[in-house]
Design a protein around this nucleic acid. Sequence first.
DNA 1: CTCGGATCTGGAGCGCGCTCCAGGTCAAGT
DNA 2: ACTTGACCTGGAGCGCGCTCCAGATCCGAG
Lengths: 115, 115
Amino acid sequence: MTTLSPAAAADRTGVSIDTLRYYEREGLIGPIGRSAGGRRVYTEEDVFWIGLVTCFREAGLGIADLREFVAILRSDHSPQDRVVFLRSRRAALEERVAALHRAIGVLDEKIAYYG
Amino acid sequence: MTTLSPAAAADRTGVSIDTLRYYEREGLIGPIGRSAGGRRVYTEEDVFWIGLVTCFREAGLGIADLREFVAILRSDHSPQDRVVFLRSRRAALEERVAALHRAIGVLDEKIAYYG
DNA sequence: CTCGGATCTGGAGCGCGCTCCAGGTCAAGT
DNA sequence: ACTTGACCTGGAGCGCGCTCCAGATCCGAG
């Protein structure tokens, strides 16, 4: 199984080493395995999960939101509970999309005015 | 012409008095007129402009972005320059929409998995 | 005229999400 | 063995966007 050093993981994910440690402290990823000497060893699975976290961060979710997300997915909640949670998160993201479209609409008005 | 006290303006716009002052300091709105005694007097036009700023804030634009936006719209730039700027802002917002859709897609996968 | 609530200013404080630093450890090359 | 560089931990620092506070001023109600 291929594993990655902290530097390699940072390179692969586009997330800085400091931020990877921060995410781990906050419970968003990991816990990450360690080598005999105590260095972090990232698996492909870790990298995948970091990708998910990054995706949500880019979408504007906060650290607390993601912590909750991780907690729900890893807990022993029923599939129904998970779906309820996931749908509520989805609705929140749709509302952000709507806010963006409102702003884009304003820009389009201005562009039409000057264009 | 109807004008509004700070409290009324805050009530109408949903923006706190402190934040209205902050936006004014930062050059996002105003300058707001003053009464004989030095209190702020908000016009309907001010309220409209605050609405625009709020719209962009809700869409995730930062204070610096909005300051630039205001500066461009108020300056004597040519219509072409304004349109170029507005289009670049529009593209940035579209990218945010794309990021949100990626995240929504991830949620949909999870929902499909559990649902 | 007095009282109390709204507002003023300048500046401090705060939560978030990193980012950086000091001081020490581990590991590979020479 | 020695050097060098990546990595470790705990904690400080920072930029953003407010939010709150102290102390002073204004102004409408009684």
